[in-house]
Simulated scan of single mutants.
Amino acid sequence: MSFPTSSRRGFLKTAVATGVSFSPLSLPDETAHVFLAGPYLQPPASNAMTVRWITAKPTYSWVEFGPTEALGQKAQSVKAGIVDANNRVHAITLTGLEPGKKYFYRIFSKEVVEFKPYKVTYGETIQSDILSFIVREAAGKQVSALIFNDLHDRPESIRHLCGLAGVNDRDFVFLNGDIFDHQNNEQQLIDHLLAPATKTFASRTPFLYVRGNHETRGAFRSDWADYFTFPDQRLYFDFTWGPVHFLVLDTGEDKPDAEPVYAGLVDFDAYRQEQARWAEQVMQSKAFKKAAFRVVLMHIPPQYSGDWHGATHCKQLFSPLFDKYKVDLCVSGHTHKYGVHPPVAGQHHYPVVIGGGPKDGNRTVIRLTADTRNLQLSMLRDDGSEVGKYAISSRS
């Protein structure tokens, strides 16, 4: 993996976007030891939180945290007895947290100048401002989330849509695919997602990433996932939060694997079949069955997405499972045509909600809330008007 060096102009842009302060307060040169992105929070838990960030140079990094601004506790990443160090992309999980409690935190990165077998030489240490988040209750009776999709390298949409929908009191945010046009390099991730998301919400509200077909394209496609934390360490996953069991699928590309544009470097048919087998096991589990609501997120919709190969394959594999195991709601993107599609007898027994985007007048943000009795969804267009809603009552 190659890493571009942040320029003086690029540093200033990122510093302003993220709101992170640096010590010492001086303009960096081409090889300065600075934060490039973050901190941004990743998959939530009722007793833990993962903090991620990127530095310009290899470092030893840690997080200090606590229930007050005095902090008092330290967390670092340790694997098989070895503390992570001499790396630039950082992920540190804070554990032993109490649900419902506010925690303050600050990230630290000490430059590793030289790493020899029996001698490590350190440089200066940089630190962020003190930030905070609230530990949400996974086992509670409510859930509140925002869902974005198909931003396609338009970072200004993050701030705009969050401003319309309100993000501060949400348990988490879903990025439901195609946040980018394709994967170029690390700087693209920083400029078009991590910096604007951190400034807007991600330093205090965690997000989960649902891969879209455009995230599978470009020279950086295999490196993309290294910058995010996924439940179960894979791109498809499930979890229960409050009354909702969420099931996330990675729908892959929209054209046949043999298409010349893929140069023989994809195998999504087998990958989707693998997920269908896994999804059926999840749907047979106690956690799925006893949840008040069962919600699927997948970038390519299982209905209303045309007859290209990827969409057709998703419909063939997943729609019968959704019917059989009584999925309550499927939320997707991909088509750039926002809409709420209720169940249709003989076609699908679950509602399909599709977000819009990415152009002005077609961008959407979806608000999803639920308690033990009711689930409500509202979709806002970028002018603030509500362009779709759906309500479901619990079967129990």
Rank of each mutant, 00 (worst) to 15 (best):
V353L: 14
Q376G: 02
D153V: 00
P256T: 12
I126A: 08
R221I: 03
L377S: 03
H192R: 13
S332K: 10
W224Q: 10
R363K: 12
R277C: 14
F268H: 12
S332Q: 10
H182V: 07
T55R: 04
Y209S: 10
Q273M: 01
R154S: 09
F230P: 11
G96A: 09
F268G: 11
D171I: 02
L97C: 07
D232F: 10
L97K: 05
V365R: 11
I392Y: 10
F133Y: 01
R159V: 08
A139W: 06
G81M: 06
R217Q: 11
G177C: 07
T369S: 09
P206W: 02
V331C: 12
R294M: 13
L27F: 11
G166C: 14
G388T: 02
V20Y: 13
L380P: 08
G384D: 05
Y236T: 00
M49G: 02
R381Y: 00
N149R: 06
L71C: 02
G96H: 03
G163A: 03
V353M: 09
F108S: 02
D129L: 11
V365T: 06
W53L: 12
K102V: 11
F22Q: 13
F108L: 04
T312W: 01
Y390W: 08
R88V: 09
K57T: 14
I134D: 06
G81R: 08
A291Q: 05
G339Q: 04
S2T: 12
G96S: 04
Y209I: 10
K199R: 15
G355C: 03
N149C: 12
G81D: 02
V352H: 10
R9S: 04
I366T: 01
V210I: 09
I190T: 06
D257W: 11
H152P: 09
F288G: 12
G19W: 06
P196E: 00
L97N: 00
F293I: 11
E111G: 07
I92A: 05
V344H: 00
P301S: 07
P256K: 05
L25I: 11
V210Q: 08
G339I: 06
K13H: 04
P43R: 08
K79V: 03
L317Q: 08
L317G: 04
L151V: 01
Y338D: 14
N149V: 02
K102H: 13
E156H: 10
R277S: 15
S132I: 02
F228W: 14
L151K: 09
L193Q: 09
E215P: 13
I82L: 15
H152E: 04
T18I: 15
R159N: 11
G123N: 07
H313Y: 09
P4V: 09
N185T: 00
